[in-house]
Amino acid sequence: MVTKKKEAKKKIFLESILVFFIAIAPFIYKTYEYLPLNADGSISFLWFTIEDNGFQDASFYVWFLTSKIVPLYLFIFWFLTSRDWWYHIIIIPIAMYAFQLFELIFDSDLQIDTDNIWWIIPVCMVTIPFVYFIRIKLYDKHVHGIDLEAMDAELEELKKKGFQVEDQNTSVDNTVEKEDESTMSLADKVNTKLSTNSIETFLKGIQDRLQGWLNFKF
């Protein structure tokens, strides 16, 4: 009972922090207007000094930073708390703002928001087909009444019953399966590893681990 109360207190505390940061998002975005600007174009705040980093002045640089940071953490909150079937697609804007923020802080040239679009393409190539496959599965199940997972489970059950009746055929079938695995092409192996269920399990595991660390249970 005490453990449940502690978990409830921790959950409410963490959710309160989440709500707090969502509520102050517009004010974080506007911080560049209120930071004291020095004569040399830098900003001194507490123990930190923010240089212009190639911009007109440091306030302009902070404006660019907040325009990336605020949407980034809002999308991360959305990803952590979403229960919609398409929540995986939120990874794309998260990656976009993360790459833009990385380029803004660490890139040495004078151009920003340029080449990072190419960094997002691999993320899109995985996420978009994956979400589309989930949509197909849901459409088949709820519109056409075709439940592929149930059909697979039924076939698996029939296969197990068949193995129990024909013990002699079991060893033969296992030998054939091993031969099939050994002769499986590279494309088939990649397709197996990158199947919809495998990717869904992987992404769901990431979300569950993050929610476990933050104790977000919805």
Rank of each mutant, 00 (worst) to 15 (best):
T31D: 07
T114N: 11
H88I: 09
D109K: 01
G54K: 00
F21M: 08
E166H: 05
L35T: 12
I117R: 07
H88E: 12
F163M: 12
I199P: 00
I50K: 01
A153M: 13
A98C: 07
S82P: 04
M96F: 10
L72V: 03
S67N: 10
D109R: 01
I76W: 00
L138G: 02
K137C: 07
V165A: 06
I24N: 02
D140C: 05
Q211E: 13
L214I: 15
D113C: 02
E51V: 08
W63E: 15
I91V: 13
K11Q: 15
S182K: 10
F21Q: 03
W47E: 06
I22F: 10
K4D: 14
D208F: 14
N215M: 12
Y34I: 15
Y29D: 07
L186Q: 07
V172P: 00
A187Y: 08
K11V: 11
V62D: 02
D147V: 10
L104D: 01
K178W: 12
A150T: 04
S198M: 11
T66N: 10
V62N: 01
T196V: 09
I43V: 15
K11R: 13
W119R: 03
T3N: 14
A98T: 11
S195V: 06
S182D: 13
S108G: 06
E177D: 10
I112E: 02
Q56V: 08
V172T: 10
L101I: 05
M184R: 10
I24W: 04
R209G: 06
I121P: 01
